[in-house]
Design a protein around this nucleic acid. Structure first.
Lengths: 201, 201
DNA sequence: ACTCCATTCGAACGAACGTTCGGACGGGAT
DNA sequence: ATCCCGTCCGAACGTTCGTTCGAATGGAGT
């Protein structure tokens, strides 16, 4: 029982790595067999179809992100600080789960049917969370939904260039992006609300 | 002569549309034959391999973007205005060439060998252009290269959500993103800059 | 009238694909 | 000892893939 789950986890981790490297469609079940230590047929003891691998990677990853974001946000009360916590959690989690998050961001449209609908639901849930945070930030100078898309864009794009083991640690990247976004999103030149005063940390 | 080039253009446009819809690897040459009006074998009179289609789409598109960006930037002299012109051009061009730009952004890693190297060269050229613009903007509060990645992220991500025919016209989207980015990037009223890796300006 | 060549296609190639099937192995329960 | 069943695999299934080949077509040049 525990052994089964453990092997499934390992299989999914391997699949995420290869999917992230080569892309979902460019990866064959034989590639996964070779990299996972299982035989080609052996994989089918753990999943029914190739698409199940993609679905489970995305579904599990999204579940973790959402839960973690909720917890991170709950620790703050001031609206801008809650947004900052959301950004920081997203980036740090991304950096800690590069393969899965790249697969989540890059292979979003490859699922079909029920699996696609379910992952879309998760995405909507996560987007709604950010939306609710942005709504509470005073002094917004840019359309809220547009700002949310822009923020997700700058955060998710990191799989194309960022390497967590490089010279910029994830927390530092998160802070820079939070500053870049929040200072652009909220009014700074004209009427300034209280958030500017509590900027330090 | 002109007929050949015209048909090649049409073939590339069709390929870009299908690649954007289904993804490069999920698209078969038979799909392209069906959608282009040519037979399967007929396609090979215009390209040597499937990969040529992807390469020509990306190479031509990048050439257009770079040329257009250079022209747009040249019309401005003030540093922030030049960045704004760059952003506006990128977004408006993106909105006007959604299929090609999505293929450029999403299928970046699918090329191999010489073709990959050549497209990478174009990308480097384009990135260098933005870098040179950001360097001249005074009062930067965020690392310049990091800001460039963030900006490309928020701009290129639009292929996942933006529809030019919707309620937000491309020029409006461009202005909103320019405001979001520039006000976050440059210091306006309050100080306390953290993490300024480069001290230029 | 004849040649030439660009254009196009039907048919087929071998390879690789996702998936299935029947059975082998081995530890726990009887 | 025997049975059972979760685990795993070699081999094969039918299909689809990118690509090639030989031939047909038709307009341009002579």
């Amino acid at each position: 029982m525990a052994a089964y789950d453990q092997r499934l986890d390992a299989l999914l981790a391997t699949a995420a790595r290869i999917f992230a490297e080569r892309g979902y469609h460019a990866t064959s079940m034989r590639d996964l067999a070779r990299s996972s230590g299982l035989s080609l047929a052996g994989i089918y003891h753990y999943v029914e179809r190739k698409q199940d691998l993609l679905f489970q990677i995305q579904d599990r990853c999204f579940a973790q992100v959402i839960e973690g974001a909720r917890a991170a946000v709950a620790r703050e009360t001031e609206p801008a600080a809650r947004v900052r916590a959301f950004i920081r959690h997203h980036i740090v989690f991304f950096a800690g789960h590069m393969d899965e998050m790249k697969v989540l961001a890059h292979e979003e449209e490859e699922l079909t049917g029920t699996m696609r609908a379910r992952v879309r639901g998760r995405k909507k849930e996560y987007s709604a969370l950010l939306d609710s945070l942005l709504r509470d930030v005073p002094g917004a100078r840019v359309d809220q939904h547009l700002a949310a898309f822009a923020l997700f864009g700058m955060m998710n794009w990191i799989y194309t260039w960022y390497r967590p083991s490089g010279s910029v640690p994830p927390a530092e990247l998160a802070d820079a992006m939070a500053r870049l976004f929040l200072d652009g999103y909220t009014a700074t030149t004209h009427a300034t609300p209280r958030l500017v005063a509590t900027h330090g940390g």
